[in-house]
Design a binder for these strands. Structure first.
Lengths: 212, 212
DNA sequence: AAAAAAAATTGACTGCAGTCGAGATTTTTA
DNA sequence: TAAAAATCTCGACTGCAGTCAATTTTTTTT
């Protein structure tokens, strides 16, 4: 690695480190780029040669971090557990991770779910990688006869992802406290698997109570 | 109505009108508060006595507008149509409305789904009103035996809302084009009703193909 | 109807995000 | 290894969001 590349890596890290520290300490809005640059020992302009905008710094941090988590999660998850269990583990881990810092999480979710047009490409790549990790889990569940095969993988994955977003929203709007997240997620995931329609054409005794 | 209240109403309207016109014409970021104030014939400070922030102007516009749409929708919707049909009508109308202006819609969705802590209360009130409008529709579907009764109204409503958010996200990330929205929404809503699990314990011939 | 109180309006001001051209540093060329 | 080219660094500068104390307008009191 050349001197230049070496330095760039160090500088980028220093900026990221300084930014995260200051953001955590004083809040995102209360931290100026100039403070970050001073703390990282570089000029203000240099920060902008590593990150396009202030939001980008958070994005850079969260994305890198999440990618690590995803890889770990999928590796460590028990491939024989039920789809429900596996999805719960994955999305609860993701929830805990993203909400470690309320402010970062909010900015990250906003940008992830409703990205600026300029960031769409970037964001989709990350999401695609994620889906590629989830697909084998769903496929295995299909092979076990746990999940219908007449639905696209992407759609099945999308249902869980969609409920994850909903739950994040409920947390940010204060409708769910941190403790209520896990049971709520389980209920909703269960309902997604079971279906919302009344099971009229099945024997009534087969209906299980799912809601609390 | 006193002279003062009269004037306030007029001024607020003038600001909103000027803002929407300029935002639409030149884009949100390219429009400054000062331009808006000049165009509305007031001082810059006055704008801030009617709206707390720049984003608030968009919010004020969208919220008022949406509330009208909601009321109309629920009044005009056919109470005897299936839940699927009704939900599709409602959320497709909402989709079309929110995405009339791509930029406004994005800002509105970000703030609605992941609101700033300061805006949570405000936002929840609007959402609650919305849910109150949807509940009777779901209740009627339950009475018709279309939807399970062992699930909370809020949960059932939440499933559809969650898929609506997902679809908005897919539109903003370019995964779905405008024409693809309606069929995608129908597929996902259907799947939510039917459930994702394989119907192993039902007679196989009862399984319907839902995916395209 | 005049004085006092309350509320609304104003634009100069502050602080920060993001830009840009000049200068420093590293790499490539000769 | 010196000159030329490419890349990185910098902080002064621009433009705008949001604040605030002074002023004007309306309402209430006497």
């Amino acid at each position: 690695m050349s001197i230049r590349e070496e330095k760039k890596k160090k500088t980028k890290n220093a900026i990221l480190q300084a930014a995260i520290t200051l953001f955590t300490q004083n809040g995102y809005d209360q931290t100026s780029i100039e403070e970050i640059s001073k703390s990282a020992g570089v000029g203000k302009g240099t920060v902008y040669s590593y990150f396009q905008t202030k939001k980008d710094i958070i994005k850079g941090f969260c994305e890198y971090d999440l990618e690590q988590i995803h890889l770990e999660l999928v590796k460590n998850s028990n491939p024989d557990a039920s789809l429900l269990e596996q999805m719960l583990t994955i999305y609860m881990t993701e929830f805990k991770h993203v909400t470690r810092n309320r402010e970062f999480g909010r900015l990250f979710m906003r940008e992830s779910v409703f990205p600026d047009d300029a960031d769409v490409k970037d964001h989709c790549e990350l999401e695609d990688k994620y889906f590629q990790l989830l697909f084998p889990i769903v496929t295995r569940a299909q092979d076990r006869g746990e999940v219908r095969k007449d639905a696209e993988l992407l759609h099945i994955t999308a249902h869980f992802y969609s409920l994850y977003i909903l739950i994040m929203s409920a947390w940010y709007t204060g409708r769910l406290s941190t403790e209520e997240i896990e049971p709520a997620m389980e209920t909703l995931f269960r309902q997604a698997l079971e279906g919302l329609k009344a099971n009229t054409d099945i024997q009534p005794q087969h209906i299980e109570k799912i809601d609390e």
